[in-house]
Design a protein around this nucleic acid. Structure first.
Length: 561
RNA sequence: UGCCUCGUGGUGUAAUUGGCAACACAGCGGAUUCUGAUUCCGUCGUUCUAGGUUCAAGUCCUAGCGAGGCAGCCA
């Protein structure tokens, strides 16, 4: 990962780096820094996870420490191997490395079980007979204390025996739980005798049917961190109230005690970030799968044409704090523009074609062989040759019959420069019976510096030779949601009502000939239009399909609105 | 109306830990340009409120206000 700066040459530090600096200065953890990313394999990674991944991996890298990938797979009911594979793939793509430190919480099931027995023996855990509903009643509310479970004072021997029976499968799902004996009157509800183990006779994707009881998140996470020698356990704000519990288990067990640090998760405009909502978009087919280019998933962004560099750079820019904030979507677009502006070769393509006949070019003849640079600021990209013929296509937007004064493109009695070719002067507008413009007739002058009516020609437009044009499907994307905060839905409606009905538009474009060889995964700038990615799934050799990653900034369009 | 956390320009973050509130993005204006792109220059604008400590407060203290999180056998 190349976004992080060296630990020593960075002038300002986020609050987590400051904590680590202080720990290091105090000689904590033997001067080591060890982080981890702990996804639950029940969904695909999204841009919010990327923030956490970049943070954790970046810190390990910055402090020359270690980074683990660990799947938090303690709930077999909703976790699948498919997600494990996808998460690993996305994390590699993002540039993470974890050497041989790929772990699963399920690796620790036996150890966790033994620790549970240890706590029972210490009188700090007990088997509870309450069912889910009763437990809720006993727990109390936010403002009232809970009351102790009738089973809270069972003897150690009794607890040991019952827990063994839970493990042996002698009870039905939900019939018993193992609970930590902490404080039913605690103002922090997480401390009111939280569940450590529940009975769940489900098949686990890794441990099969070995276990009929599974540890809860709270009884798993801290100990997993501890086992792996994690020094700084970085998680999101909603776990803040769980930290006392994290600490309680580590201390009660007398094991290595990593430090949990919470930061604010990423929110962005025009996006939903919850796994539940993303899953719903997929299952209800509002999008075409997890990798739909409109999705904020890593897979969606990849397919849209985002580079891992741009995502890392974005994550770097948004910073890390404990303040709930919402990042403007344009920051993401900006990050990819910055990358692709530098690295994408230029091409010409016309999205909505309007035919132009250069009347002074003889039929069947080539007016000019033009040599265009593949990158205006970087000669190393080389050049390519494009033939200009009698008939070409230009963008419909680049002609306006009733044009404002500041319109620098084609208009009646006007002239434009055809990029890399010469000047076209408009002579005649051809319309059909409905009065629609179907064709333009122009006079062509191969001198690109030629003047028109004594004036310099100000506008330059892109074009494609009609005879040689290759047709290709191009997908134009807009925000998936049309409101800044899609989660905010009025009474009686849901976030789905905020979907943007025109988030996807598919056109058949006319592209310059060289693009027929475009290969899956390649990225181009279509001049004046934006950045386009050759879709890795729907493209075929000789028949590329393009996804628009981002438009170019357009101060002209902005000035009109 | 319990506990926890957080309040710095439009947005996101800084502030050498008590010493002239800065950076980026957005906005606006301009220059350059064979992409109305890129690049460059200029400009606008900020410490939630009220007290207190101090020569000095974004930073420390008190109160208030506002926002978020928490009552799964989810993570």
């Amino acid at each position: 990962m190349d976004s992080g700066t060296d630990a020593t040459d960075k002038s300002s530090r986020n609050f987590i780096e400051q904590i680590i600096d202080a720990d290091l200065a105090a000689g904590k953890n033997g001067g080591q820094v060890h982080t981890r990313f702990p996804p639950e394999p029940n969904g695909y990674l999204h841009i919010g996870h990327a923030k956490s991944i970049c943070l954790n991996f970046g810190i390990a890298k910055q402090y020359e420490g270690k980074f683990n990938l660990r799947f938090d797979d303690t709930n077999p009911a909703r976790e699948e191997q498919e997600y494990v594979d996808a998460i690993i793939d996305d994390m590699r793509w993002l540039g993470c490395e974890w050497d041989d430190r790929l772990f699963y919480a399920s690796d620790y099931f036996q150890q966790l079980h033994d620790w549970a027995v240890q706590l029972i023996e210490a009188g700090k855990a007990y088997v509870c007979d309450l069912d889910a509903e009763q437990m809720r009643e006993y727990r109390g509310t936010l403002t009232e204390p809970g009351k102790p479970s009738p089973n809270r004072e069972r003897t150690v021997a009794e607890n040991l025996e019952l827990f063994a029976k839970m493990k042996a499968g002698e009870f039905a799902d939900g019939e018993r739980t193992l609970r930590a004996k902490i404080d039913m009157a605690s103002p922090n509800i997480n401390l009111r005798d939280p569940v450590m183990y529940r009975i769940k006779k489900a098949h686990h994707q890794r441990t099969g049917d070995d276990w009929g009881i599974y540890p809860s998140y709270d009884f798993t996470h801290g100990q997993s961190d501890s086992l792996e020698g994690i020094t700084h356990s970085i998680c999101t704000l909603e776990f803040e109230n769980h930290r006392p519990l994290y600490d309680w288990f580590c201390d009660s067990l007398g094991i290595h005690h990593p430090q949990q640090i919470e930061f604010a998760r990423l929110n962005m405009t025009y996006l939903v970030m919850s796994k539940r909502k993303l899953l719903q978009l997929v299952t209800e087919k509002h999008v075409n799968g997890w990798d739909d280019p409109r999705m904020p998933t890593i897979r969606g962004l990849r397919r849209r044409g985002y580079t891992s560099h741009s995502i890392r750079s974005f994550c770097e820019r948004v910073g890390v704090t404990k303040v709930n904030s919402t990042i403007d979507m344009v920051w993401l677009e900006d990050a990819i523009r910055e990358d692709l502006n530098e690295n994408a070769p230029r091409r010409m393509g016309v999205l909505r074609p309007l035919k132009v006949v250069l009347t002074n070019v003889p039929e069947g003849e080539t007016a000019k062989v033009c040599e265009l640079p593949n990158h205006p600021q970087n000669e190393e990209f080389g050049t390519r040759k494009i033939e200009l013929g009698r008939e070409i296509y230009i963008e419909q937007d680049d002609f306006q019959e009733d044009a404002p004064k500041k319109f620098f493109r084609l208009k009646p009695d006007g002239a434009v420069r055809l990029r890399g070719a010469g000047i076209a002067v408009l002579d005649e507008i051809v319309k059909n019976e409905a009065g629609e413009v179907v064709e333009l007739h122009c006079a062509f002058n191969p001198d690109t510096t030629a003047k028109h009516n004594e004036k310099k020609v100000k506008g330059t437009i892109h074009w494609v030779n009609a005879e040689q044009a290759v047709e290709a499907e191009v997908r134009l994307y807009d925000h998936l949601f049309q409101t800044e905060n899609p989660n905010k839905a009025p009474e009686g409606s849901t976030f789905l009502d905020n979907l943007n009905p025109s988030s996807l538009e598919t056109v058949t474009a006319k592209l310059e000939p060289s693009l027929s060889h475009a290969e899956a995964g390649e990225k181009y700038q279509f001049e004046r239009l934006g950045y386009f990615h050759v879709d890795p799934i729907d493209s075929n050799p000789g028949q590329p399909v393009f996804n628009r990653t981002a438009t170019l900034r357009d101060s002209w369009a902005k000035s009109k609105s």
